[in-house]
């Protein structure tokens, strides 16, 4: 639903002396070439992105490499002493397998939490934050449509989350190859994709809530609320005797319920996550196009 949005564009030549008055452009079409907003946002955020990528890669690699320590009898004994529900909630029931270990540490906990924090903050800031502090005003009053501003800023969010996912995935792949864990790269790719889709869904909620209200705080609250509820619902689903209905409600469960590290892409679960983002984006575009800006 994003792809068809592209409108015909006029691209007046940038070379040569400008006439005393700019020639009338065809109305209601973007004057700026596509990607101008996107590249601007990415250039503005590259420093923060690099720092985040280094940090999440380092933490992921560190946790993954602890597997050599955890993969022993002491660990199994400790888990045996823990209550069953807690073990299941933490995902420790399968911690003895390489895939189970990676899932309970990196893919089921640290990765999604770190990426969620990044995604929610950026999702609320990249549109609503700059609208609220007024620094989006020049962009919104220039030769770009509201829709293009919104979509390109959303794409900037997607690309940055994807970059962090790649950073995590590469770090894990290096460790997996280095300490010879039995996890397929296909499984890692599927889990990475799932983690991206889950954190993007939460970030999209933050983005859309911000786009609808023009308030960064509302975006942050909506994103954090959905994210935390998703985690809680998933944890309870594991502890309850019949928790499947809770799993059906939690986007976090949609991400891990198909066991992507072993089984690969879970079409229904991943599709559901993608649908959340698509719906959030559609709502954001629709409302942002109609409402008063910067009030």
């Amino acid at each position: 639903m994003v792809a068809e949005r592209h409108e015909p564009m006029t691209t007046p030549s940038a070379s040569g002396p400008s006439p005393s008055v700019v020639a009338p452009a065809a109305s209601s079409t973007d004057v700026a070439t596509s990607g101008k907003v996107l590249s601007w946002v990415l250039r503005q955020s590259r420093r923060a992105l690099v720092l985040w990528a280094v940090a999440v890669a380092a933490v992921s690699a560190m946790y993954a490499s602890f597997y050599t320590v955890m993969d022993g009898p002491e660990m199994s004994a400790m888990i045996e002493g823990m209550p069953e529900g807690l073990v299941a909630a933490l995902g420790y029931d399968r911690i003895g397998t390489p895939a189970g270990y990676l899932e309970s540490t990196v893919y089921g906990l640290l990765g999604p939490i770190l990426l969620m924090v990044f995604g929610i903050t950026l999702g609320a800031r990249v549109l609503a934050g700059v609208e609220e502090d007024g620094s989006l005003e020049l962009e919104l009053t220039s030769g770009v449509s509201r829709r293009r501003v919104l979509v390109e800023r959303y794409v900037a969010l997607v690309l940055q989350l994807a970059a962090l996912t790649v950073a995590v995935s590469v770090a894990i792949m290096v460790i997996v190859a280095g300490i010879d864990m039995e996890v397929s790269f296909g499984g890692l790719a599927a889990a990475g994709l799932g983690m991206l889709l889950f954190t993007l869904a939460v970030a999209s909620v933050a983005f859309a809530a911000g786009a609808v209200t023009g308030r960064r705080a509302v975006g942050l609250a909506a994103g954090a609320g959905v994210g935390v509820l998703a985690f809680i619902a998933d944890a309870f689903a594991g502890m309850l005797d019949d928790g499947r209905w809770l799993e059906a409600l939690s986007p976090f469960s949609w991400y891990l319920m198909g066991d992507p590290l072993v089984e690969g892409v879970h079409v229904a679960g991943f599709g559901g996550l993608l649908a959340v983002s698509v719906v959030a984006l559609a709502i954001a575009v629709t409302v942002f196009d109609r409402r008063d800006l910067g009030v």
Partner: peptide, 9 residues
């Protein structure tokens, strides 16, 4: 109606 084309002027 004028949108971005108008604003660029």
């Amino acid at each position: 109606e004028g949108g971005p084309g108008l604003r660029a002027r």
